[in-house]
């Protein structure tokens, strides 16, 4: 039963679109991510009260919230395929890299939604505003790409384990530590009003991290996914 052929990019987008459609209908990941972010932000805001911590602490708090909120939802892209029993037919239906990039884009979109919601809430509840928005946003975008890249491959690794949640965070933390240190440094500079000259080392590290993480994931994914 022949049909017209579709491009590699269309296959990748079909995986992303399928995940978005399923997510809208089931709220599998987005609810846990958003609830975690909201609860953490509220608790920190109440704990700080009228205190105005320095930009170093605020930058760390921002990424701690983003990191743990991401941990609570990003692994679902592969865990739900394994738990629902759909991973088997997916493995036989398309190339491993189509799945990887489809899931990576979905996780990146999820992180973007999370970031778009967290940033204004962080500014309102914790009364802190980036003094240099360009530096803040470049750190946020590169940080989200690194976070999505690392968590997507780690999610594929832990999806078959029995204690998925704990294993996901334990495996993610050492892999994401260099990324977190670099983005926290950049966010500190953004909150403190510094400019691009102050973040050149962190920026290079972030770009290198993102490239290495996606390249290593591409090299490893087929093996991780098939077995």
């Amino acid at each position: 039963m022949p049909g017209s052929s579709v491009s590699w990019a269309a296959k990748v987008l079909a995986v992303t679109r399928k995940d978005i459609t399923a997510e809208f209908r089931t709220r599998y990941a987005i609810n846990s991510i958003l609830m975690f972010a909201l609860v953490t932000l509220t608790v920190i805001s109440m704990a700080l009260g009228l205190m105005t911590p320095d930009s170093d602490l605020m930058a760390a708090l921002f990424w701690v919230i983003l990191f743990f909120a991401a941990m609570s939802g990003l692994a679902q892209v592969f865990i739900k395929e394994e738990e629902a029993g759909t991973a088997l037919i997916l493995k036989l239906s398309t190339e491993g890299l189509v799945i990887f990039f489809g899931k990576l884009i979905f996780n990146l979109l999820l992180l973007t939604v999370l970031s778009v919601l967290i940033v204004p809430l962080f500014i309102i509840l914790l009364k802190v505003t980036p003094q240099n928005w360009a530096v803040f946003l470049i750190g946020l975008v590169l940080g989200d790409i690194g976070l999505a890249g690392a968590t997507t491959i780690i999610a594929a690794i832990v999806a078959k384990a029995t204690v998925k949640g704990a294993l996901f965070t334990v495996l993610s933390f050492p892999i994401l530590l260099p990324l977190l240190m670099a983005v926290i440094d950049i966010t500190k500079v953004a909150f403190g009003g510094g400019n691009f000259g102050d973040i050149s080392t962190g920026l290079q590290l972030l770009v290198a991290y993102d490239v290495v993480m996606v390249t290593v994931s591409v090299m490893l994914f087929d093996f991780v996914w098939r077995q």
Binding site: G3, V6, A10, A14, I89, L90, T94
Partner: peptide, 12 residues
């Protein structure tokens, strides 16, 4: 439609 598309085919 999804399984056909990820396999590289658009079906009517």
């Amino acid at each position: 439609r999804f399984f056909a598309k990820v396999d590289g085919r658009a079906v009517s």
